[in-house]
Design a protein around this nucleic acid. Sequence first.
DNA 1: CTGTTAGCGCATTCAG
DNA 2: CTGAATGCGCTAACAG
Lengths: 334, 334
Amino acid sequence: MKKVTMAEVAKHANVSKSTVSQYLNKRYDYMSKKTKQRIEQAIRELGYQPNFVARSLKQKKTSTIGVIVANILHTFSTQIIRAIEDVCHESDYHVIVCNADDDPDKEKKYIQMLMAKQVDGLIVFPTGGNINLYQSMVKEKFPLVFVDRIVSGLSVDTVILDNEAAAKLAVNHFIEKGYERIGIVTTSLIHNLTPRVERITGFIKAMEEHQMPIRDDYVRGMEVHLIKEGLREMYALDQPPQAILAGNDLALMEILTYAKENKITIPGQLALIGIDEVSFANIYNPPLTTVKQPVFQMGKKAAELLFRKIENPDPSGESRVHRFEPELIERESC
Amino acid sequence: MKKVTMAEVAKHANVSKSTVSQYLNKRYDYMSKKTKQRIEQAIRELGYQPNFVARSLKQKKTSTIGVIVANILHTFSTQIIRAIEDVCHESDYHVIVCNADDDPDKEKKYIQMLMAKQVDGLIVFPTGGNINLYQSMVKEKFPLVFVDRIVSGLSVDTVILDNEAAAKLAVNHFIEKGYERIGIVTTSLIHNLTPRVERITGFIKAMEEHQMPIRDDYVRGMEVHLIKEGLREMYALDQPPQAILAGNDLALMEILTYAKENKITIPGQLALIGIDEVSFANIYNPPLTTVKQPVFQMGKKAAELLFRKIENPDPSGESRVHRFEPELIERESC
DNA sequence: CTGTTAGCGCATTCAG
DNA sequence: CTGAATGCGCTAACAG
C-alpha cells in the first residue's frame, strides 16, 4: 500500500505542487508544453492517484450523495436507487445507500452519519419519525429531497406518485370488467404513510364516483405477516370480494401466496391488480395486471432536484411536490 | 448550511481542541467530570457534528469500502450487496456500490475512482478484463476480495459457489425424476466467466457419471436476447430436450417467457431447474425448483475477509478460494 | 488531566 | 508561466 502524493510528483517533475495541482485541474492556460509533459510523465512513472479526501476537505465538497430508503424490500426502492445511481454516475457523483428498515432511529443514525461524512446532499424516503431532524436540515439549507412520502408542514421538494390516480386506475379497470365486490389490501396503515393512505383514499373516491358500495371488510391495511390471516377473514365472509387491489408489491406477494395455497384461481375466482411493477409480472401465470410507477423518471427527477440544490442553493428555500402519473399495464389477472 | 468546528466547541467550552478530540474519541481516562460536562454542553448547544472527511484525511482511513458488481441485473448481485451492506453497517463501515455493467472500462474507471476516494478496501465481481490493474492492486497490497469469479494467476481471496456441484445437483435431480434428454441454457460464454464455464463443466461431468449422452444441441450459451432464438432452435429438433437447466436467473426468465409464449407446460412438457434463487420461485405456477446459493453467508464471508485484510494486512499476501455449497430447493417445476 | 505543536494531501491566493 | 505560503478540520505525540 503506497501513497504517492502531489509533492512527490512535483519533485519528480521539478516543479512545485501548485503547478501539478493546476495541471490536474486542467488549468493549462499558462503552462508550457514541456512542463505539462514532465508532469504527465512523472504521474505515470510514479503511478500517482489524487487523493479525493484531501480535495474534499479543502473544497468542502465530496461529490457524494446519500440515499436513505425507508424499506429496501420494496421493488420500488431498489428501482429508484438504480435510477438515481445511473444519473449520479453520469454526473460523477457517488452514492451511498442506506436502508432505514422503517425504523426512525436507524434513519436518524444514517442521516447523521452521512452528514458527518459530508455528503453534498441527501435523498430520503422519510419514515416520518424524525420531524425535528428534517426541520433542522431545512433550516440549515442542507440539500434534501424526499421521495415517495410527504412530510406535512415541511418545505422539502418531494417526488411522489399520484397515488390516488393509481388506485383509481385500478378501480376503474375492475369496474369496466364488471366486478362489483372490490377490495383493497395493503401493508400496515398505523404510520399513516402517504402512499398507503392516498391509495386507500383514491380507492374510496373511485368507488364512490361509480356509486359502488364500500365495505369496511374489503378495505384492509395490515402488517405483511398478518395479511394472510386478513385474507382468510375476508374469505370467511358470506360474500368474499371478487377483485382485490394489492396496495404494493409486498401485499401482492402475500395475496398471490394465499391464492396459491387455497387454490383460488386468478382471475376466475379473484381478479387482481397490483400497484408497483414486479419483475415477474409478465411471466406469471396468469400475467399480472399492474399499475406501474414511472420509476426511472422519478429517480432521475429526485437526483436532478438535488443536484440543482447542491449547485445553486436557492436562498428562498421554496419547494414543491412533484407528482408523477401512474400507468395501468393490462395483462391477464384482471 | 452551517459548519461548527471543533475549534468553536473548544472555545465555547474553554478547553483546547485536543481535549475535545479526546472526548470525542472516548478517551475519558484522565478527564475531569467538569470538563466532560462542559464539552458535552457545548456540543449540544452548538449542534456540533464531527467532520468525517477531516478525520479520514488524518487517519488515512475512511471506514468505507467499495463494491463493484459486474452486472447488477442478476438477483445474485443484489442479494450479495444486501448481505455485504448488512455486515458493514454492523461494523460501521459504509458501502459504495458501482455497477460495471460487464464493461472492463467501466470497471477500471470505478476502481480508480474508489481508490482515489480512499476506500479502505474493495470487493469486486471481476469482469476479468483488467488483469494488470488487479495485479498492481495485489502488488500494493490493497485490500481486495473477489466474488463469483476466479481470475487465474492472481493471488486474491475469492468467494464463490461450488458451481460444478450446483450443476450436478440439478442434473442428478433431473435423472432421478427419469428425464433423459437434458439440456443446459445459459448466458454468453464468450468471456469465459467462471460460473458459466464451471456450471457447464459440472453439467457435463454429471451427465457422464450417469452415462447419459451429451448432445451439443442441448448445451447452449448465448447472449440474453438470443436465448429465445436458441430455444426455438432446440424445439425445432426432432427430439427437443425434456428438461433444461437454466444457468442463471436471466436465462431462467427467458426460458419461462419462451415456455409461456409457446404454451409449453412445466413440468409436463419441460422440466425446469434454475440456478439462482428468484423472488417468485415459490409463488410461480408451478413453483420453481431452484439451486440456491448461500448468498448471505457468501456476502458475509466476503466482507469479513476484506475486514481482516484491512485491519491486519497480511504481509505474506496469501490467498485462497472459498467455495460455498449450493442447495437444491425442490418445488414443482421438476 | 489539558494545552501546544505539527502535520494529513490538496487547492488557492498572491507574488514573482 | 511558476512557486511559496496558508489553511481545510481533525488527530497525535509531547509537554506541561
